[in-house]
């Protein structure tokens, strides 16, 4: 029984980290209406930034947030501004610009291979960090400490993003642009600047998720792919553009991954994840927490 509870708690913690990686994706999608295929690569880049920041300064992994968040914000901001925006402008009248999706796929390949070229294929991990391998002992249960930190970070980040979108001037402008681009323009909102900011925020959230991962996860050029597909599933499961949905969706995936292996071969857990994904698409295409509304 305790073993079962232990799996649940660890599943929730890991799942909330998945949710955090998906949160960045959902923010970007919510505003730009573009599935960002470079998402996994942004996680990978963030992990490298976090890795080098921690290795060079020797600080506690979470202190690296001070470096990673602004670096990734501007990385995302200018990636949208320089690479994606021109394509957007060329397809101004298209509601769901397909070419933009293709461009993000190109960005994915370029970033992954550039990283391979510069840093090589080897796996890196931060061996001597105060969180690595730490376990919290409650009764007979062992809870992973770095994942627990990840859980707390995910909840705080989601709450902060929600507050920002609801209560600030820029947050309102982001929501307005996400609901109706043209009407937002008529309010004096520069939609392309809002796209830049939303992309920056989404990428900064990805940076936060990378910081929660590096204390216990290996870093290598194709690491993003592992989170890429999970991210898409979570976002669709939770409801496109829904902040709470991303975290809850992540936790559902985390729970399946940690509980299912107790009853079956671990590889079957993946099948359950995809099965659930298909069921949700059939039954409630807008996702568990998505608003039934035309994006």
């Amino acid at each position: 029984m305790e073993f079962f509870l232990e799996s649940i708690l660890n599943g929730i913690c890991m799942g909330s980290i998945y949710g955090l990686t998906a949160l960045g994706l959902t923010v970007i999608f919510g505003v730009l209406k573009v599935i960002n295929f470079a998402h996994g690569s942004l996680i990978m880049v963030s992990m490298y930034v976090a890795y080098w920041a921690i290795i060079y300064t020797g600080v506690h992994p979470y202190v690296a947030l001070i470096i990673v968040v602004p670096v990734m914000y501007f990385f995302g901001y200018y990636l949208q501004d320089i690479v994606i925006k021109p394509i957007f402008k060329a397809e101004k009248d298209v509601r769901e610009p397909i070419t933009v999706i293709i461009v993000t796929t190109g960005v994915w390949y370029i970033l992954d291979n550039l990283t391979l070229l510069i840093f090589g294929p080897q796996y890196r991990g931060i061996q001597n960090n105060p969180l690595r391998g730490k376990m919290l002992d409650i009764g007979n249960m062992l809870i992973s400490v770095p994942k627990l930190w990840g859980f707390v970070t995910a909840v705080i980040t989601a709450a902060a993003v929600y507050w920002f979108l609801q209560k600030t001037r820029t947050g309102r402008a982001i929501r307005a642009t996400s609901l109706d681009r043209e009407a937002a323009s008529l309010m004096g909102i520069n939609q392309f600047k809002i796209y830049n900011i939303a992309f920056g925020i989404g990428t900064a959230i990805v940076g936060i998720s990378a910081v929660t991962l590096v204390p216990f996860y290996n870093i290598f050029p194709s690491v993003g792919v592992l989170f890429d597909i999970k991210g898409f599933i979570i976002v669709v499961l939770g409801g496109l553009g829904s902040i709470g949905g991303a975290i809850i969706g992540g936790i559902i995936i985390g729970l399946i991954e940690s509980i299912a292996p107790m009853f079956m071969t671990a590889t079957w857990a993946e099948a359950i994840v995809y099965g659930l994904f298909l069921v949700v698409l059939f039954v409630k295409p807008s996702g568990l927490f998505g608003v039934k509304y035309d994006w």
Binding site: R169, R172, A173, R175, A176, L179, D180, E182, A183, A184, L186, M187, G188, I189, V291, Y293
Partner: peptide, 21 residues
Amino acid sequence: PEGRRLFTLMSVKDNLIIGAY
């Protein structure tokens, strides 16, 4: 604009605040 084009999932107050952007 024609057809009102409100920000449908935002409150009336937020719609007005956005107007003053």
